[in-house]
Design a protein around this nucleic acid. Structure first.
Lengths: 200, 200
DNA sequence: ACCTGAACACCGTTCAAGT
DNA sequence: ACCTGAACACCGTTCAAGT
């Protein structure tokens, strides 16, 4: 597992192959299959290890704040190892080690007046939002890093038809700047506000 | 492109390789490279084709409803071809053909009293939520289909420590049922409510 | 038990050579 | 212009054979 972590940090997750991992660990590819079932098993274990290694944050007393803190902790943990996105799409997170986040959010929602059913709904909305933010932002970053040509997407907004897409055309060249901003936290706040029962 | 579509629909997106595609199209793999740059180029074009093929829905007059309708249309379009998730993680949507959705949401947000900056923020929140929902739900479905063993995740909730995870333990075996529900629409509504300026 | 070399059945992509 | 066979540099995984 340590060799796999080194390999990913050094060469990127795309370079993590059974053959390279064997070389990094100083053994033969076939030997690996005595310790793991297959490659997906390896990725799942890496994901769980990473989740276990991130400390649980101090949780505020207010339930709304507690929900936000739990979601943010998981989000930030995922964001530090962006290659996890590739595993997220192959295997769900919410391995045992991340269950505290689920518990915290569900509990906070119940404290805010949700039924258990509604609380699960709140958790799911937050989880969708979080996964989506990571997936989209990671891919945007990767594409920016890979392409020498200046993004193709960033330049496209300068040549839009104002008749058909008036607001986008008006935004024009401000688009890259606006979409580069980190809005996870404020979007999360809005989502929580919308999902929880409204203040009396 | 038609051959690629047939191949995916028949054998699944994992089976879409340059060699198989060439066989399906009755030509040689090398010939393909005269018509596309590389495999990512092929996937991008498939994505754009699919987005173009989905009709634009009738849009309600109320701006909030309009935002919800645009997001739902894109969401449903993605949901009909779940393999797109794999491309979404390799390449952003928001190809030209989907820009109408961006325009609709941004315009609706402005009509609700947002500044252009806030309107972009609204769009991004909705996009994150939508991508996340598709990614998570598609993978859950795939895993259910692949594994003969009964999901491992669904059974885990029956043996949780009530001392550490009281709410999850209490939910217990209702978890699979609750998470199987389609809550995209109501979560979207909550997100929009939270993101837009509040009613006076 | 633990490890391995050889092999199987594949990949995406390139490139010189053909029509 | 359009197409191709052969080849390159890889994959994940299996399996009989070794210690």
């Amino acid at each position: 597992m340590a060799a796999a972590g080194r390999l990913i940090d050094r060469d990127g997750w795309q370079k993590l192959t059974m053959r390279r991992l064997a070389a990094e660990a100083g053994t033969s590819p076939t030997t690996l299959y005595h310790h793991i079932r297959d490659k997906e098993d390896l990725l799942t274990r890496l994901l769980d290890d990473h989740a276990d290694s991130t400390p649980r944050p101090d949780l505020p007393r207010d339930p709304r704040e507690r929900i936000a803190a739990a979601a943010t902790a998981i989000h930030d943990s995922l964001a530090t190892w962006p290659w996890i996105v590739e595993i997220l799409t192959a295997d769900d997170l919410t391995g045992d080690s991340a269950l505290w986040m689920v518990e915290t959010i569900v509990a906070g929602a119940v404290d805010c007046g949700c039924t258990p059913e509604q609380a699960v709904h709140v958790y799911r909305g937050i989880w969708y939002y979080t996964v989506g933010e990571i997936v989209v932002r990671t891919n945007a970053a990767r594409r920016r890093a890979e392409s020498e040509r200046p993004a193709h997407r960033d330049t496209r907004f300068r040549s839009l038809d104002p008749a058909e897409l008036p607001h986008l055309a008006a935004l024009g060249e401000r688009w890259p700047e606006l979409t580069a901003r980190d809005t996870y936290a404020s979007g999360l706040r809005a989502l929580i506000d919308g999902l929880l029962p409204h203040h009396p």
